[in-house]
Design a protein around this nucleic acid. Structure first.
Lengths: 122, 122
DNA sequence: TGATTGTTATATTTATATTATAACAGGCCC
DNA sequence: GGGCCTGTTATAATATAAATATAACAATCA
């Protein structure tokens, strides 16, 4: 899977990595049971430190996106506990919708944008 | 306006403040032309440092939510440049939808959540 | 005049992010 | 066994950002 890190972004490297992996799972580029590249492999291929990758993987594990197998490394295994996710999603959406609302982006445009993004995940 | 800062949150204080003010504008608790409390007033009422408030106000100014009047302080004045906002909204939504999709939250549930949040902003 | 406004400057402390080097235990393969 | 690969842990150093503290300045207004 192609992962691109923007070193000029204000977003932390490990978060960029985390986000791209989650988007990769959503887009089915990573499937249940697939192994992620080892921390060392990923670090080299992306051009960042091993510990930064390790932090991303650790976060992904804590959030229930991967499980770690001693021999196979980080394996995609989504633990679908909606409840923990739900409030967090709601909290973030609330801020985004406030921003867009202030900037005259209509509710309908948001719905359309959601549709658009879901198209890309297909 | 009631602003509540969560000191246990991992979110930066100035960002919590920024977000709540933007949500306040969206919810019409702050209206076009209203003055925000002075940096010193807000700092004291919320229990944080003046410079932390100043940073939040500066960000809000740069993002086009307030303008600063020498005598009236920070005044709500939303500069509706949709273009700058649009890509940022899209970028954030993409991550959120990936997360929810992985966690078996359906597209329809997202649409419903959007409706729900817009209800609160009414 | 006196109080309040945003703004700027400087300094310190604290927390987080990132990199670096190194080691350990477990599994796998030749 | 001997390497080679896993994740994991420890420790340290560096860099950046967040938060607080104290202080001053010019402009505004009652």
């Amino acid at each position: 899977m192609v992962i691109e890190i923007d070193f000029n972004s204000d977003e932390a490297l490990y978060l960029q990595l985390r986000n791209q992996i989650i988007m990769g799972i959503a887009a089915d580029r990573f499937r249940e049971g697939d192994s992620l590249p080892s921390v060392r492999q990923m670090a080299e291929s992306v051009g960042i430190n091993m510990h930064t990758v390790n932090k991303a993987y650790t976060v992904l594990k804590q959030e229930g996106y991967v499980k770690v197998d001693r021999r196979r490394g980080a394996v995609v295994a989504v633990d679908a506990d909606r409840l923990k996710t739900w409030e967090e999603i709601r909290r973030q959406l609330k801020v985004i919708l406030a921003e867009s609302s202030c900037k005259n982006i209509s509710k309908e445009e948001i719905h359309q944008l959601v549709e658009e993004i879901y198209e890309d995940y297909r």
